[in-house]
């Protein structure tokens, strides 16, 4: 499944059968490359993050959670940066560990069952998720 296909999907609580938030973005972490958190919008509480472990399922049309109490604020500095959108992967430049730029990320392919990132997509090429080394404020670093 692609990030572009799932943006703006509703997050639905199965306890109340109501929409509790909307998917605004994804927080990808390396080692192994995975979707660690979802960044949410239109939330009712203070927090905007939803950990992948707290999802009930990532469906083709909506994301379900057992209850909206799993939506939480950032717990550490990495999560804080993610919440501030500093670590957004879409649009970020891709550098190899040899210092060559491969364009910028236009989309990400991931497994909705596990959250594993299968590939990073740039205008020119598709890079295997297994090559992801690091993701920071400046660049996505992949092995050469």
């Amino acid at each position: 499944m692609l990030f572009s296909q799932t943006r703006k999907h509703n997050v639905v609580s199965t306890a109340t059968a109501t929409r509790v938030a909307r998917v605004d973005g994804f927080v990808v972490l390396p080692g192994p490359a995975r979707v660690a958190l979802l960044r949410l919008g239109k939330v009712s509480g203070a927090g905007t993050l939803l950990a992948w472990e707290d999802l009930q399922s990532f469906g083709p049309d909506a994301v379900t959670v057992a209850t909206d109490t799993v939506i939480r604020p950032a717990r550490d500095t990495v999560e804080q940066r993610a919440e501030d959108n500093d670590l957004e992967i879409i649009g970020k430049r891709v550098l190899t560990e040899r210092g060559m730029e491969l364009g910028s990320v236009t989309d990400v392919d991931f497994d909705p069952e596990t959250g594993a990132v299968t590939s990073l997509i740039t205008k020119a090429e598709t890079i295997s998720g297994s090559r992801l080394i690091g993701l920071g404020g400046y660049a996505v670093v992949v092995s050469a």
């Binding site: 560990e97 920071g136 404020g137 400046y138 996505v140």
Partner: peptide
């Protein structure tokens, strides 16, 4: 030329 960490930070 930018000096970048493997973690992607400038």
């Amino acid at each position: 030329r930018p000096v970048v960490t493997l973690g992607g930070e400038l």
